[in-house]
C-alpha cells in the first residue's frame, strides 16, 4: 500500500538570535491525522520552533515542507509571501496561548468566526452568520453570545472562540501554543475533551506546544522533548512518558505530581 506523503516535513530547522540559540537542527515529519506534542521547559525553544513552522518567524537554516490539498509539496520559506499568507489563512490554523493575540477583541464573536470566510471571498451575510452559529455550537458556546465582543468572555470561552475561528476555514493543520495555559483545571479538562473530539471528527493534524504533560498524554500520538533548543527525545507519547530514556525527560516525567 502506498503511504500518503507526510503533511509537514521539517529538515534541520535552526533559528538563532545572534549568538543565542532558539532551536537547533530540529527534524521531524507530521503525517495526516497525526497530533504531535512538543514539550520542554520554558526557554527550551518550543515557541521559536512553532513560530518557524507556522511561517511567522523565518528560520536561520533548514526547511519546512508542506504538502497541500493537491499533493504539491510547498517549501514554506521559499514560497512567495502571498502564498505563505494564503496558507496561514486557509490550510492552517493557529491557536495562540493568549486569546488576545488570536482574536479581534473589539468585534463580536460572530465576526471573529466569520473573518476567515470573508478573507477568502465569502460575501453572503446570512451564510457567514449560519456558519458562525454552527461553530459556536460545535465549541459549546451559547448562541446568544454571538453578538458579544470577546472581551466580555471568560478565559475558557475566549479560547474556545479562538478554536472556532481557526477551524471555520476547515484547515488541515493546526498549530497550538499552550492551548490550555492560564485556564483552571475543570475548564482545561473540558477544553481538552472538546479538542480531542474536534480533532478526531475533522481528521486534523496538529502540532501542540505545551509544558503540560497531561495535555500531551491526552491529545498527542507522538511527542518530542526539547531542551536548550535541541530535541533530546522523540517517540510515541506513551512510550516516551512511560519509559523515558533521556535524563531530562526522566526528570520532567518524575516532576509531575500525582494526586
Amino acid at each position: 500500500m502506498d503511504a500518503p506523503p507526510p503533511l509537514l516535513q521539517i529538515e534541520g530547522l535552526t533559528r538563532t538570535y545572534g549568538r543565542r540559540i532558539g532551536c537547533k537542527d530540529v527534524s521531524f515529519s507530521l503525517w495526516p491525522g497525526e497530533i504531535l506534542g512538543v514539550v520542554g521547559e520554558s526557554g527550551s525553544g518550543k515557541s521559536t520552533l512553532l513560530n518557524c513552522l507556522s511561517a511567522k518567524l523565518e528560520p536561520t537554516a533548514g526547511r519546512v515542507l508542506y504538502t497541500d490539498r493537491h499533493g504539491r509539496a510547498i517549501d514554506v520559506w521559499a514560497a512567495s509571501e502571498p502564498e505563505r499568507r494564503m496558507l496561514m489563512r486557509t490550510d492552517w490554523g493557529i491557536v495562540h496561548q493568549n486569546p488576545r493575540d488570536g482574536l479581534r477583541m473589539g468585534v463580536s464573536a460572530g465576526a471573529n468566526i466569520g473573518e476567515r470566510l470573508m478573507a477568502v471571498g465569502e460575501r453572503h451575510y446570512g451564510g457567514i452568520r449560519r456558519e458562525a452559529e454552527t461553530w459556536m455550537r460545535r465549541v459549546e458556546m451559547d448562541l446568544d453570545r454571538i453578538d458579544d465582543a470577546p472581551f466580555t468572555f471568560s478565559g475558557g470561552m475566549q479560547q474556545r472562540l479562538q478554536i472556532a475561528r481557526n477551524l471555520v476555514s476547515k484547515p488541515r493543520l493546526v498549530f497550538m501554543d499552550e492551548p490550555t495555559g492560564g485556564l483552571d483545571v475543570s475548564v482545561q479538562a473540558r477544553l481538552l475533551d472538546l479538542l480531542r473530539g474536534l480533532v478526531t471528527d475533522l481528521g486534523l493534524s496538529a502540532v501542540i506546544v505545551t509544558h503540560d504533560l497531561a495535555v500531551t498524554r491526552l491529545l498527542a500520538h507522538r511527542m518530542i522533548v526539547m531542551r536548550r533548543g535541541e530535541v533530546v527525545e522523540a517517540g510515541l507519547t506513551d512510550q516516551v512518558l512511560d519509559d523515558p530514556q533521556h535524563p531530562y525527560t526522566q526528570l520532567l516525567v518524575s516532576s509531575i505530581l500525582h494526586p
Partner: peptide
Amino acid sequence: LQEYGVMHVKLYEDIA
C-alpha cells in the same frame, strides 16, 4: 496583496 476580506468584518459588525 489585496487582502481586503477584513474590511467586511466591519460591515458584518454593522449588520449584526
